[in-house]
Amino acid sequence: MIVCHCARIRSSDIHAAVAWMRAADPHGLITPGKVYRALGKRPECGGCVSLFVDVLRADENTGVPPVLRGLRSPAKRRMK
């Protein structure tokens, strides 16, 4: 499926970039900006960004790596 006509990005391009990024750094966070840069592209008109993010979110490799989950613990409440 074509995601961006301006930059000629297909959903398969996004999935391939995510797979490459995950293989290169299994613990890294994958963001839309990093995927655009990995593809050597950038959003031009911005009309594709919401669809781009939807495709990115649907990819099973874009989640937060298990080693990074739960690092942020809830702040302890101070008793006065």
Rank of each mutant, 00 (worst) to 15 (best):
V49Q: 10
C4S: 14
A17G: 04
K34F: 11
A16R: 15
Y36F: 15
P65Y: 04
L51F: 04
V53M: 09
V53C: 10
A23H: 08
D54Q: 11
R78H: 12
P74Q: 07
F52Q: 00
P74L: 06
L39D: 00
R42P: 02
T62F: 00
C6G: 00
C4R: 01
C4E: 05
P26W: 04
R69Q: 14
W20S: 12
E44I: 13
G46S: 10
R22F: 05
L56V: 08
A75R: 09
V35E: 01
S50R: 11
L68A: 15
H27L: 13
H15F: 11
P43F: 04
T62V: 07
V53E: 10
V67N: 04
G70E: 08
H27K: 13
V67S: 11
R37M: 13
V55P: 00
H5Y: 13
C48Q: 05
C4Q: 04
V3C: 08
R77V: 14
G40K: 08
M79K: 12
R10Q: 14
C48P: 03
M79V: 11
G47M: 10
P66W: 04
S73K: 15
M21Q: 12
L29K: 03
R72L: 13
V35N: 02
C6N: 06
R42A: 13
A17R: 01
A17E: 02
I2F: 03
K76M: 13
A19Q: 15
V55A: 07
P66V: 05
L39P: 02
V49W: 02
P26E: 06
R22D: 00
K41F: 15
I2A: 06
D25S: 10
D13C: 07
V55M: 06
A23M: 13
V35Q: 01
A16M: 14
L56W: 00
G47C: 12
A7F: 07
R10K: 14
I14D: 00
V3R: 02
L39V: 01
V18R: 00
R69N: 06
H27Q: 14
A38D: 09
A75Y: 03
A19F: 12
I9T: 02
E44T: 07
A17S: 10
I2D: 07
P74Y: 05
